[in-house]
Write a protein that binds this DNA or RNA. Sequence first.
DNA 1: ACTTCTTTTTTAAATTTTTAAAAAGTTTTT
DNA 2: AAAAACTTTTTAAAAATTTAAAAAAGAAGT
Lengths: 402, 402
Amino acid sequence: MGDNKIDFLISHSKTIKCLYYHTLLTSTEVSNHTGKSIPNVIKTLNEMIAEGYVEEKGLANSKGGRKPLNYSLVANTHYLLSVAMDQFSAQMVLVDMNNQFVTDVARYGFELRDLQTDKFIEYLNHFIKASGFAKNKIIGIGITMPGFVDTEKGVNYTYLKVAGQTLVEYIQQNISIPVFLDNDSTAIALAEQKFGVAAGIKNVMVLNLGWGIGLGMILNDKIFRGNNGLAGEFSHIPLFKNGKLCTCGKHGCLETEASLIAVTAIAKQGIGQGEITSLANYEDIDADIIINEAIKGDRFSVKLISEAAYHVGEGLAILIHLMNPAAIVLSGKGSVVGKLWLAPIQQAINEHCIPMLTSHTTFIISELNTRAQLIGGAALVVENFGKNLESKLNEIEDQVSV
Amino acid sequence: MGDNKIDFLISHSKTIKCLYYHTLLTSTEVSNHTGKSIPNVIKTLNEMIAEGYVEEKGLANSKGGRKPLNYSLVANTHYLLSVAMDQFSAQMVLVDMNNQFVTDVARYGFELRDLQTDKFIEYLNHFIKASGFAKNKIIGIGITMPGFVDTEKGVNYTYLKVAGQTLVEYIQQNISIPVFLDNDSTAIALAEQKFGVAAGIKNVMVLNLGWGIGLGMILNDKIFRGNNGLAGEFSHIPLFKNGKLCTCGKHGCLETEASLIAVTAIAKQGIGQGEITSLANYEDIDADIIINEAIKGDRFSVKLISEAAYHVGEGLAILIHLMNPAAIVLSGKGSVVGKLWLAPIQQAINEHCIPMLTSHTTFIISELNTRAQLIGGAALVVENFGKNLESKLNEIEDQVSV
DNA sequence: ACTTCTTTTTTAAATTTTTAAAAAGTTTTT
DNA sequence: AAAAACTTTTTAAAAATTTAAAAAAGAAGT
């Protein structure tokens, strides 16, 4: 079958992508991004204007010549549903074709490891209904979450497992909207690359500082996922001989010394041993509290974060040796205290890295913060405009007609 | 100016590359490799036949239809000079357009860290003259060597440094043939990808088992070099808290426990302490001797190799976590005892890797052995057919006409 | 041996894409 | 304020590429 409108969209996916990622572009800029000639681009753009997907948005500035027309996507032709999950909640937001949030960010709480897929689908349906937007206006859902995710297959090997079917298939069957699944850290890397501080840098390591330490890699300007989508398992590289058992079942993972979970455990131990710290004022402490007290200046809290950061730095030293990145971005929830991490990381790097290599790598703190993962989820859908979206739409159509 | 013949070659570089890498292809296969339509491919091929670069080579088999014509490059239109260096010597060979060695492999001995660039150029001139082939038939020189190499810039930051000029520029000025420089391990990875066991695999880690432990990475079907060509510094990832000073100036590098240099040092120490081993029969031992005795079955030698291999495995566990490769190839000189490495590496992987990840990665032992680096050097020149070759030829022409 | 089916090659037509040049709109200079 | 310089847009022509159909060559079955 194949909807003509959709075919049209898909055949112009390159143009859509660059307009989505840059919001406002001139024909020359689109030409540069797509690699097509200017007459070609203008023809395409005019076709898209005729179909209502693109609009002219005034004139851009020029440095001595005719002012070029600005083009952008019409914001309300379609919407992207971004679902950003972590261990304890799913955040959802609807994003328009200009990468703007058009709803409030909704939050559904749970324990991820106990979450049932059907419950999750309930949340999705609830959010869509509550959003007030027409369901058929939602062109795709981008779900980003922790765990071992194979984006191509549409499976999370760790959470939300469905028997006999992929998670993506299952959700699609129940919601009838194309679904794309990806790892949380990869989504954050995508967000940083398209809209954040990693924009325009070809080789970037994006750290997702959260409960664990996630890693999204941009190599040669492309998100790198490895052979089965499992690349970037930074949190569990075997780095320490500390004998500590990790949640993954192995010993001495980076996570056992450097994650916020480890930090919290060490903090509790310290308090028990009578450390002088404002943390002692709390009945029960968690990572957020430690971060807050560290920001306020509590010595013990700062020391805890610093020590974790140093260990992250040890891991990063290895990463730099292997990947020779132009930049390392500190992103994710934990990046709000980015500056606290920076000095100890730098120190570890200096101690463990060959100077030749460190001199080529700079550290950057994210400005997207908590929005990164949501932005990445929407971008994930846009990234799949084209062949992938087409085949998912066909799947859904087949299934409805059966 | 630009030679017409060369312009012709360069404009058909895609076709040349796939014919070089596969030796014998049908028009359909060329079409698949280049992404061009069959009429287009056949037109190109016929043009190249007219120019003498391609020839028809009989008919290929067919499963029920007209037999397709085979095409291949004419072997003797040009030659590629491959120079494979290690710490103690440079091997040189001339390779034809069918990837066949057309001279014996010449060997020039030296201490790399003491080698002067002018002496090296002497060797090159000597080899070219002694080869008996016309210099203008040599279309490019591929030099592959240890050290921090920036291929794009044409510099080795570690060896053969030239003041005020890049190494590549300097050699080109003296030899008047385009020169391409790359890291030895990267070259080996390229060889394995194009002609070896890594062919057709999209994400492969190629280990260069030699004096150090080099790493060449194939990511998404492409050689990955990092932001400044320095990626793959596997040998110096900080992995141990052993306090041992490494040649790089840092402490605890993988190399301090796992390289053949480290193995040799440990062996000498063991002999001094009266270990019962056939190694004791030698006046002075080196890595080759240990490898040979290990093959012959000397327990102590096997144990030494095994321990080194286990440490390599610890490093590989990290690599697998980060890159999720489909395969890890054991190549380089040391791969002749590939099977000796395999079991202890596997054991380390099992101990330090999340099973989910190991199950997706297979180990393969190279079949290219000592020829890998030489093949890679020639392939390096072929890889640069196109823009890069053109600009180097222009540089040389400008310089001659001045 | 003949027919039927496949696959490759060739040919011609259609389409896409680029190139080049002209026209139109701004800024800077005189 | 007018001219010159510079850009972007538009248009038209040329070139490249692909598509589709026909022809040729061989394999497999009857």
